[in-house]
Nucleic acid binder design. Structure first.
Length: 282
DNA sequence: CTCCAGGTGCCGA
DNA sequence: TCGGCACATGGA
Protein backbone atom coordinates (compact mmCIF):
# COMPACT_ATOMS: atom_id res chain seq x y z
CA UNK A 1 0.00 0.00 0.00
CA UNK A 2 1.01 3.61 -0.56
CA UNK A 3 1.62 5.97 2.32
CA UNK A 4 -1.67 7.63 3.30
CA UNK A 5 -2.24 10.89 1.44
CA UNK A 6 -4.59 13.81 2.03
CA UNK A 7 -8.24 13.31 1.07
CA UNK A 8 -10.31 15.97 2.78
CA UNK A 9 -14.11 16.12 2.62
CA UNK A 10 -14.04 12.52 1.52
CA UNK A 11 -15.83 9.39 2.73
CA UNK A 12 -14.69 6.29 0.86
CA UNK A 13 -17.42 3.98 2.11
CA UNK A 14 -20.27 6.39 1.41
CA UNK A 15 -18.89 7.13 -2.06
CA UNK A 16 -18.48 3.49 -3.08
CA UNK A 17 -21.96 2.64 -1.78
CA UNK A 18 -23.78 5.60 -3.28
CA UNK A 19 -25.22 3.89 -6.34
CA UNK A 20 -22.68 5.31 -8.78
CA UNK A 21 -20.58 2.18 -8.95
CA UNK A 22 -21.49 -1.39 -8.12
CA UNK A 23 -18.49 -3.66 -7.84
CA UNK A 24 -16.23 -2.56 -4.96
CA UNK A 25 -16.03 -5.21 -2.26
CA UNK A 26 -15.15 -4.79 1.40
CA UNK A 27 -12.09 -6.92 2.18
CA UNK A 28 -12.86 -7.47 5.85
CA UNK A 29 -9.90 -5.36 6.96
CA UNK A 30 -11.48 -1.96 6.46
CA UNK A 31 -10.46 -1.69 2.84
CA UNK A 32 -12.17 -2.10 -0.56
CA UNK A 33 -11.06 -4.19 -3.51
CA UNK A 34 -11.88 -3.38 -7.09
CA UNK A 35 -10.54 -2.85 -10.58
CA UNK A 36 -9.10 0.47 -11.64
CA UNK A 37 -7.52 1.13 -15.02
CA UNK A 38 -7.06 -2.54 -15.81
CA UNK A 39 -5.46 -3.49 -12.51
CA UNK A 40 -6.73 -4.77 -9.18
CA UNK A 41 -6.54 -2.10 -6.51
CA UNK A 42 -7.13 -1.86 -2.79
CA UNK A 43 -8.37 1.37 -1.25
CA UNK A 44 -8.47 2.12 2.44
CA UNK A 45 -9.27 5.15 4.55
CA UNK A 46 -7.09 4.77 7.66
CA UNK A 47 -8.68 7.82 9.24
CA UNK A 48 -10.85 10.74 8.28
CA UNK A 49 -9.08 13.01 5.79
CA UNK A 50 -6.63 10.37 4.60
CA UNK A 51 -6.61 7.71 1.89
CA UNK A 52 -4.19 4.97 0.93
CA UNK A 53 -4.16 2.91 -2.27
CA UNK A 54 -2.23 0.01 -3.71
CA UNK A 55 1.29 1.28 -4.41
CA UNK A 56 1.47 2.89 -7.83
CA UNK A 57 -2.29 3.48 -8.07
CA UNK A 58 -2.43 6.65 -5.98
CA UNK A 59 -2.87 9.06 -8.89
CA UNK A 60 -5.43 6.87 -10.65
CA UNK A 61 -7.35 6.59 -7.38
CA UNK A 62 -7.27 10.33 -6.82
CA UNK A 63 -8.74 11.02 -10.25
CA UNK A 64 -11.27 8.18 -10.08
CA UNK A 65 -12.55 9.23 -6.66
CA UNK A 66 -13.03 12.86 -7.64
CA UNK A 67 -10.57 14.11 -5.04
CA UNK A 68 -9.72 17.03 -7.34
CA UNK A 69 -13.23 18.45 -7.03
CA UNK A 70 -13.30 21.68 -5.06
CA UNK A 71 -16.03 20.87 -2.57
CA UNK A 72 -16.25 24.26 -0.89
CA UNK A 73 -16.59 25.98 -4.26
CA UNK A 74 -19.25 23.45 -5.27
CA UNK A 75 -21.21 24.03 -2.08
CA UNK A 76 -21.04 27.78 -2.52
CA UNK A 77 -22.65 27.45 -5.95
CA UNK A 78 -25.81 25.79 -4.57
CA UNK A 79 -29.12 27.64 -4.34
CA UNK A 80 -29.91 28.98 -0.85
CA UNK A 81 -33.63 29.62 -0.92
CA UNK A 82 -36.16 28.71 1.75
CA UNK A 83 -37.30 25.67 -0.24
CA UNK A 84 -33.68 24.47 -0.46
CA UNK A 85 -33.69 23.45 3.21
CA UNK A 86 -33.98 19.88 1.96
CA UNK A 87 -30.67 20.26 0.10
CA UNK A 88 -28.93 21.59 3.20
CA UNK A 89 -30.25 18.61 5.18
CA UNK A 90 -29.01 16.24 2.49
CA UNK A 91 -25.56 17.86 2.44
CA UNK A 92 -25.26 17.47 6.20
CA UNK A 93 -26.39 13.86 5.94
CA UNK A 94 -23.56 12.68 3.70
CA UNK A 95 -20.47 14.87 3.92
CA UNK A 96 -17.62 13.32 1.98
CA UNK A 97 -19.74 11.91 -0.82
CA UNK A 98 -17.91 12.43 -4.14
CA UNK A 99 -18.86 12.16 -7.78
CA UNK A 100 -16.67 9.50 -9.38
CA UNK A 101 -14.75 9.70 -12.64
CA UNK A 102 -15.50 6.28 -14.04
CA UNK A 103 -14.21 4.79 -17.29
CA UNK A 104 -16.81 5.78 -19.86
CA UNK A 105 -17.53 2.33 -21.31
CA UNK A 106 -17.87 0.72 -17.90
CA UNK A 107 -20.19 3.51 -16.80
CA UNK A 108 -22.33 3.45 -19.95
CA UNK A 109 -22.63 -0.34 -19.90
CA UNK A 110 -23.45 -0.52 -16.20
CA UNK A 111 -26.17 2.09 -16.43
CA UNK A 112 -27.72 0.45 -19.49
CA UNK A 113 -28.21 -2.55 -17.20
CA UNK A 114 -29.64 -0.35 -14.42
CA UNK A 115 -33.03 0.58 -15.82
CA UNK A 116 -35.91 -0.34 -13.53
CA UNK A 117 -33.60 -2.28 -11.22
CA UNK A 118 -32.74 -1.93 -7.56
CA UNK A 119 -29.18 -1.00 -6.63
CA UNK A 120 -28.56 -4.43 -5.07
CA UNK A 121 -29.53 -6.16 -8.29
CA UNK A 122 -27.48 -3.88 -10.51
CA UNK A 123 -24.55 -4.88 -8.36
CA UNK A 124 -25.37 -8.56 -8.78
CA UNK A 125 -25.53 -8.18 -12.56
CA UNK A 126 -22.25 -6.26 -12.62
CA UNK A 127 -20.43 -9.01 -10.74
CA UNK A 128 -21.94 -11.71 -12.92
CA UNK A 129 -20.85 -9.98 -16.14
CA UNK A 130 -17.37 -9.31 -14.80
CA UNK A 131 -16.84 -12.84 -13.65
CA UNK A 132 -18.14 -14.42 -16.85
CA UNK A 133 -16.60 -12.11 -19.43
CA UNK A 134 -14.05 -9.85 -17.74
CA UNK A 135 -10.30 -10.22 -17.29
CA UNK A 136 -9.33 -11.97 -14.08
CA UNK A 137 -6.99 -9.91 -11.92
CA UNK A 138 -5.53 -10.72 -8.55
CA UNK A 139 -4.62 -8.82 -5.42
CA UNK A 140 -3.47 -10.23 -2.07
CA UNK A 141 -4.74 -13.63 -3.11
CA UNK A 142 -8.21 -12.29 -4.03
CA UNK A 143 -9.63 -12.58 -7.52
CA UNK A 144 -10.96 -9.32 -8.94
CA UNK A 145 -12.58 -9.08 -12.36
CA UNK A 146 -12.25 -6.09 -14.65
CA UNK A 147 -15.35 -4.89 -16.49
CA UNK A 148 -15.58 -6.83 -19.78
CA UNK A 149 -14.31 -5.01 -22.89
CA UNK A 150 -16.88 -4.19 -25.60
CA UNK A 151 -15.47 -6.98 -27.77
CA UNK A 152 -16.05 -9.55 -25.01
CA UNK A 153 -19.66 -8.45 -24.52
CA UNK A 154 -20.22 -8.39 -28.27
CA UNK A 155 -18.78 -11.89 -28.66
CA UNK A 156 -20.84 -13.24 -25.76
CA UNK A 157 -24.08 -12.61 -27.63
CA UNK A 158 -27.44 -11.38 -26.40
CA UNK A 159 -28.65 -14.74 -25.08
CA UNK A 160 -25.59 -15.30 -22.89
CA UNK A 161 -26.07 -11.81 -21.48
CA UNK A 162 -29.70 -12.55 -20.78
CA UNK A 163 -28.54 -15.56 -18.77
CA UNK A 164 -26.77 -13.15 -16.40
CA UNK A 165 -30.14 -11.89 -15.20
CA UNK A 166 -30.26 -8.91 -17.53
CA UNK A 167 -33.74 -9.49 -18.86
CA UNK A 168 -34.74 -7.11 -21.65
CA UNK A 169 -31.64 -4.97 -20.95
CA UNK A 170 -29.47 -7.57 -22.67
CA UNK A 171 -30.36 -6.12 -26.07
CA UNK A 172 -29.19 -2.63 -25.17
CA UNK A 173 -25.93 -3.80 -23.66
CA UNK A 174 -25.17 -6.07 -26.61
CA UNK A 175 -25.95 -3.41 -29.20
CA UNK A 176 -23.79 -0.84 -27.42
CA UNK A 177 -20.89 -3.30 -27.23
CA UNK A 178 -21.27 -4.07 -30.95
CA UNK A 179 -21.16 -0.40 -31.91
CA UNK A 180 -17.99 0.17 -29.91
CA UNK A 181 -16.30 -3.07 -30.96
CA UNK A 182 -16.95 -2.21 -34.61
CA UNK A 183 -15.59 1.28 -34.13
CA UNK A 184 -18.91 2.92 -35.06
CA UNK A 185 -18.67 5.12 -31.98
CA UNK A 186 -15.61 6.34 -30.10
CA UNK A 187 -16.47 7.23 -26.52
CA UNK A 188 -13.16 9.06 -26.02
CA UNK A 189 -14.02 11.31 -28.94
CA UNK A 190 -17.31 12.22 -27.25
CA UNK A 191 -15.31 13.87 -24.46
CA UNK A 192 -14.69 16.81 -26.77
CA UNK A 193 -18.39 17.46 -27.33
CA UNK A 194 -20.34 20.20 -25.55
CA UNK A 195 -22.86 18.98 -22.96
CA UNK A 196 -25.95 18.96 -25.17
CA UNK A 197 -24.24 17.10 -28.02
CA UNK A 198 -22.78 14.55 -25.63
CA UNK A 199 -26.25 13.96 -24.25
CA UNK A 200 -27.64 13.51 -27.74
CA UNK A 201 -24.87 11.06 -28.65
CA UNK A 202 -25.49 9.00 -25.51
CA UNK A 203 -29.25 8.92 -26.16
CA UNK A 204 -28.37 7.42 -29.54
CA UNK A 205 -27.64 4.12 -27.81
CA UNK A 206 -30.61 1.76 -27.65
CA UNK A 207 -31.75 1.60 -24.04
CA UNK A 208 -30.29 4.97 -23.10
CA UNK A 209 -32.79 7.75 -22.42
CA UNK A 210 -32.52 11.08 -20.63
CA UNK A 211 -31.93 9.65 -17.17
CA UNK A 212 -29.21 7.17 -18.09
CA UNK A 213 -27.54 9.70 -20.40
CA UNK A 214 -27.37 12.10 -17.46
CA UNK A 215 -25.87 9.45 -15.19
CA UNK A 216 -23.24 8.56 -17.77
CA UNK A 217 -22.30 12.16 -18.50
CA UNK A 218 -22.07 12.81 -14.75
CA UNK A 219 -20.23 9.68 -13.56
CA UNK A 220 -18.34 8.82 -16.75
CA UNK A 221 -17.68 12.13 -18.48
CA UNK A 222 -17.15 14.53 -15.59
CA UNK A 223 -20.12 16.76 -16.52
CA UNK A 224 -20.82 17.96 -12.99
CA UNK A 225 -23.87 20.02 -13.97
CA UNK A 226 -25.71 16.89 -15.09
CA UNK A 227 -28.75 16.18 -12.87
CA UNK A 228 -30.24 12.69 -13.39
CA UNK A 229 -33.91 12.47 -12.43
CA UNK A 230 -34.89 8.96 -11.37
CA UNK A 231 -37.96 7.82 -9.41
CA UNK A 232 -36.45 8.82 -6.04
CA UNK A 233 -35.38 12.25 -7.16
CA UNK A 234 -38.64 12.89 -8.98
CA UNK A 235 -40.63 12.10 -5.82
CA UNK A 236 -38.37 14.31 -3.71
CA UNK A 237 -38.48 17.23 -6.15
CA UNK A 238 -42.26 17.13 -6.52
CA UNK A 239 -42.64 17.04 -2.75
CA UNK A 240 -40.19 19.81 -1.86
CA UNK A 241 -40.28 22.01 -4.96
CA UNK A 242 -43.82 21.33 -6.06
CA UNK A 243 -44.74 25.00 -5.90
CA UNK A 244 -42.15 25.95 -8.50
CA UNK A 245 -42.50 22.88 -10.68
CA UNK A 246 -46.26 22.83 -10.88
CA UNK A 247 -48.69 20.18 -9.70
CA UNK A 248 -49.21 18.30 -12.95
CA UNK A 249 -45.94 19.11 -14.74
CA UNK A 250 -44.75 16.14 -16.83
CA UNK A 251 -41.35 14.58 -16.15
CA UNK A 252 -39.47 16.58 -18.80
CA UNK A 253 -40.56 19.76 -17.03
CA UNK A 254 -39.24 18.42 -13.72
CA UNK A 255 -35.89 17.79 -15.42
CA UNK A 256 -35.73 21.28 -16.85
CA UNK A 257 -36.48 22.78 -13.46
CA UNK A 258 -33.79 20.75 -11.71
CA UNK A 259 -31.18 21.47 -14.37
CA UNK A 260 -31.78 25.19 -14.14
CA UNK A 261 -32.32 25.41 -10.39
CA UNK A 262 -29.29 23.51 -9.10
CA UNK A 263 -26.80 25.08 -11.46
CA UNK A 264 -23.24 24.42 -12.52
CA UNK A 265 -22.59 21.63 -10.00
CA UNK A 266 -26.10 20.23 -9.97
CA UNK A 267 -24.73 16.70 -10.15
CA UNK A 268 -23.37 17.04 -6.63
CA UNK A 269 -26.69 18.40 -5.36
CA UNK A 270 -28.44 15.50 -7.06
CA UNK A 271 -26.14 12.95 -5.45
CA UNK A 272 -26.66 14.36 -1.97
CA UNK A 273 -30.42 14.38 -2.49
CA UNK A 274 -30.47 10.88 -3.96
CA UNK A 275 -28.41 9.43 -1.13
CA UNK A 276 -30.58 11.17 1.47
CA UNK A 277 -33.85 10.15 -0.16
CA UNK A 278 -32.83 6.54 -0.71
CA UNK A 279 -31.46 5.95 2.78
CA UNK A 280 -33.89 8.07 4.77
CA UNK A 281 -36.97 7.84 2.57
CA UNK A 282 -37.48 11.61 2.55
C1' DC B 1 -49.20 -13.15 -3.72
C1' DT B 2 -48.48 -8.17 -4.82
C1' DC B 3 -45.60 -4.28 -5.37
C1' DC B 4 -41.63 -1.92 -6.92
C1' DA B 5 -36.97 -0.96 -8.66
C1' DG B 6 -31.20 4.97 -10.17
C1' DG B 7 -36.44 3.82 -17.37
C1' DT B 8 -36.94 3.27 -22.21
C1' DG B 9 -39.25 2.54 -26.64
C1' DC B 10 -43.26 2.76 -28.98
C1' DC B 11 -47.89 3.56 -29.71
C1' DG B 12 -52.10 6.49 -30.46
C1' DA B 13 -54.62 10.86 -29.45
C1' DT C 1 -45.71 16.93 -26.94
C1' DC C 2 -48.33 13.87 -23.83
C1' DG C 3 -50.11 9.70 -21.44
C1' DG C 4 -50.30 4.70 -21.34
C1' DC C 5 -48.32 0.32 -21.62
C1' DA C 6 -45.07 -3.62 -22.14
C1' DC C 7 -40.87 -5.06 -20.84
C1' DA C 8 -37.54 -9.40 -17.38
C1' DT C 9 -36.07 -10.25 -13.04
C1' DG C 10 -35.60 -10.60 -8.14
C1' DG C 11 -36.05 -8.74 -3.46
C1' DA C 12 -39.17 -6.91 0.12
Amino acid sequence: MSAPFAAGDFDLKATLHSGQVFHWRADGAGGYLGALGGRAVRLVQPESGLLAATAGAEEAARVYLGLDHEISKIHESFPRGREDAILREAMAYCPGLRILNQPSWECLATFITSSLKQVAHISQISHELRQRFGERLEIDGNAIYAYPLPQAIADAGEDALRACGLGYRARGLHRAALRLARGEVDLDALRELPDDELREALCGFYGVGEKIADCVSLFGFGRLQSFPVDVWIERLLRKHYGGQIGEKAPLPRVREFAQAHFGRYGGYAQQYLFHYARLEGV
